[in-house]
Each structure stands twice: as structure tokens, then as C-alpha cells.
Computed example of a mutant assay.
Amino acid sequence: MPEAASKRILLVLLIVAVVPVGLLARFHGGPAWLRNSAGAVLYEVVWIAAAQFAWISARTHRLALAVLAATCAIELLQLSDAPWLWAARSTVPGRLLLGGNGGFDLMDFPLYGLGCALGYALCRPLRASP
């Protein structure tokens, strides 16, 4: 099996392992700060793994920085009262992608950074050689 294909399989397995853990952490028991923190960190890991899957030979640190920038932008969108954002957040996928836990939270930024560092560490070995 070509290197890229085997690395993509491992990335899919990583995503399949992290998504249920993230959803469980986010929606099942425990203190709210822990649910939100675990969800934010694992959210970054999944997006970095998905980006590495799509761009298998891309440098992982660049993907991690792009994911960090995108998720920080999404966090800043929570400051907006645009009707289309409220409509999107009223759905489960919208809440999961755009946030719906009470709006903007400055403390999410360090969690995104931590998640990107973890995502980088997990996905870097799964990058295919160019």
C-alpha cells in the first residue's frame, strides 16, 4: 500500500477515535469548564487531522496554524448577532461547528492553542513524504 494511503487510513482512525470522545466530553456529565475545555481541545485535533487527510503531504505545522486561525475567527464570530449565525447555531451541526455554549469566551483561545499543539503532535507522524 502506498505511504499516503496508509497514512490517510491512520488519520481516519484518529478522527474516528477522537470524535466520540469529544462528543462524550462535551455533552456527558462533569463540570461545565471541563466539558468545554475538552471539547475545544479535541475540536482542534479533529480539524488538524481532517486537514492533514486532505493535504497529506502538507507541513503539519502550517495546517495547525491555519486551523488555529480559522477556529479563532469562528470564536470571534460569536460576538456577532447576525441572524444567519443565530439560525445556524440553532441546529446541532451549527452549534458544534460555530459554538453555542453561551457565546464568545476569551479562555477558548489558549484551549485552541493547546489543541493545535496536541493535533500537531498526533498528526505530524502521519504526514506523507512529499
Score class of each variant (00 low, 15 high):
Leu11Asn: 00
Leu79Pro: 00
Leu10Arg: 15
Ser80Pro: 02
Leu111Ile: 09
Trp86Ile: 12
Ala38Leu: 15
Asp108Ala: 10
Ser80Gln: 05
Ala88Ser: 02
Trp55Glu: 09
His28Phe: 15
Leu106Glu: 09
Ala40Phe: 08
Ala69Phe: 12
Val46Ile: 14
Phe53Thr: 13
His61Phe: 08
Thr71Pro: 01
Ser129Trp: 11
Gly103Ala: 07
Trp47Thr: 04
Arg35Leu: 04
Ser129Met: 11
Ala25Gln: 03
Val19Cys: 07
Ile56Ser: 13
Leu106Asn: 00
Gly99Gln: 04
Gly30Glu: 10
Val18Pro: 01
Ala88Met: 09
Ala32Glu: 14
Arg127Met: 06
Val19Tyr: 05
Leu111His: 03
Val45Lys: 02
Arg8Pro: 10
Trp55Pro: 01
His61Gln: 11
Ala17Trp: 02
Ile48Asn: 01
Ile15Lys: 08
Leu42Lys: 00
Glu3Trp: 09
Leu23Pro: 01
Pro83Val: 10
Ser6Leu: 15
Pro31Ile: 11
Leu68Ala: 09
Asn101Phe: 13
Gln78Glu: 10
Arg127Phe: 01
Gly22Arg: 06
Ala87Tyr: 04
Ala88Gln: 02
Leu13Asn: 04
Pro93Ala: 13
Gly103His: 04
Leu76Gly: 01
Pro110Gly: 09
Pro110Glu: 00
Phe104His: 04
Ala49Val: 03
Val12Gln: 02
Trp33Gln: 13
Glu75Lys: 01
Thr91Arg: 07
Gln52Arg: 08
Pro20Asn: 09
Ala25Ile: 07
Ala25Phe: 09
Asp105Arg: 10
Leu79Gly: 09
Glu3Ala: 09
Val67Tyr: 00
Val19Gln: 08
Gly29His: 13
Leu122Arg: 02
Asp105Ala: 14
Ala4Cys: 05
Pro110Leu: 07
Asn36Leu: 15
Ile9His: 09
Ala50Cys: 14
Arg124His: 12
Ala25Met: 13
Leu65Val: 14
